[in-house]
Every structure is written in structure tokens, then in C-alpha cells.
Amino acid sequence: MEQRIGASSKPSGAEPLKAEPVTGAGFDPAFIPGITTPAPTKSDEPEPEDAEPSAESAEPADAKAPEETPEADETTEDDGPDDGPVFEAADRRARIVADRKGVRLRLDEESCEFRWDEIAAVETESPRFGKRYTITVHTPDRRWYPIEIEAAARARFTEWDEQLDAVLDAYFEDAG
């Protein structure tokens, strides 16, 4: 017996619908929305049907000259001297950097970057006891990304609050 799940709006005799591959944490335990992307599948890159191999693809990979140097990747047209305030805090596992480009979070080998126009709010929390300073980046689509930095001493919390406030005052514009 054949069962169909869901409604089908195709006329009979038409080509069957192709199923999209299912991605996400249910199929890839390392998938974290906003931080990692799903692993590419073969169907993500369509192959041209009538393409002939070009002279470029016939050359070995090491014979090609690099198009861009690493220095060219780091600087763009609007990059000038980084005169403004910069906030940086790190411990043995976690790191946060907030500067004129945005906010970058890193935990172990995972990292993510937010431009200032992608951020709805930045929240800090100092614990009553302990030395873990929490910074949470909120996005407009109601997602949040917390990171905890372990301080050497509780006195660092006020110093970090002042530095982060200076960066937020300089670069973050609240649209509300």
C-alpha cells in the first residue's frame, strides 16, 4: 500500500518533486545555528551539463598563482587606522573582541562574527560570586549568543564594563 504524506499540488503525470536534504542538529550533532553551517552536500553544487574542461582546470593546483595575498584579505576599502576603542577579553577557552568592525566571539575551535548592523543588543552580567563574566550578543531575530570569560580577579569586571561601554557608545547605534 502506498502512502503520501502532505498535499501534492502537481498534476498527475508530472515529474516527481525532489526532496530537500534535511540539515540541522538532528542530523549533524556539531551543527549550531548561527555559528556553524551545515556540511555541504553534492546537491549544493550543480554541475554544468555542457561544460568543457578549460585550460585553467587542466593546470595542477600548485601551478596557479594566488589571486589575493593574505594581507589583501585583511584590509578592505573602508579600513582605515583603528583609532577607536577596542574591547578584548580572553581566558584559556573563550575570547571576545569588540571593535569598529563588530563583535567576534570564540569558544575553543568555534567562532562567530557579528557586524554592528546584525546586533540588537549586547548584555553583560557579573556574578555575585565567582569570576565568570558573561557577555550575551542578541540578534534581531531573537537569538542570543552568550560567552563566559573567566577573570583573574573580580576587579576586572568593572574595567571590562567600562571598556565595553566605550566600544558600544562609539559603534553601536540603537535603531529603536
Rank of each mutant, 00 (worst) to 15 (best):
E71Y: 14
A153E: 13
P16Q: 04
P146I: 13
T134F: 00
D73S: 11
P81R: 11
G34H: 10
R104Y: 11
E67T: 09
A63T: 04
A155D: 14
A72S: 13
R142Q: 07
E68P: 00
A151F: 15
P66I: 13
D78P: 06
I32C: 05
K42Q: 08
P66E: 03
F87N: 00
E56C: 06
T36Y: 12
P48N: 05
S111K: 15
D141P: 11
R154F: 11
R142I: 10
P60H: 01
P33I: 12
V167N: 08
V22R: 07
A25I: 13
S9T: 09
T139L: 11
S54W: 10
E125F: 08
Q3E: 03
E110L: 15
G130S: 08
A39W: 01
E15P: 04
S9I: 09
P66F: 12
E150Q: 06
T134N: 05
P33D: 05
G80V: 06
E56G: 04
A58H: 02
F172I: 04
R128T: 12
G6T: 00
A39P: 00
P127D: 02
A152C: 05
F27P: 00
E56P: 00
I5V: 04
A61C: 01
L107M: 09
S9G: 02
V22K: 07
D165C: 02
E49T: 08
R95T: 12
A151N: 07
I96P: 08
E20L: 06
S8Q: 02
P33T: 09
I96V: 15
A175K: 14
D169G: 08
A151S: 07
P127S: 04
K42H: 03
P70H: 03
D44K: 10
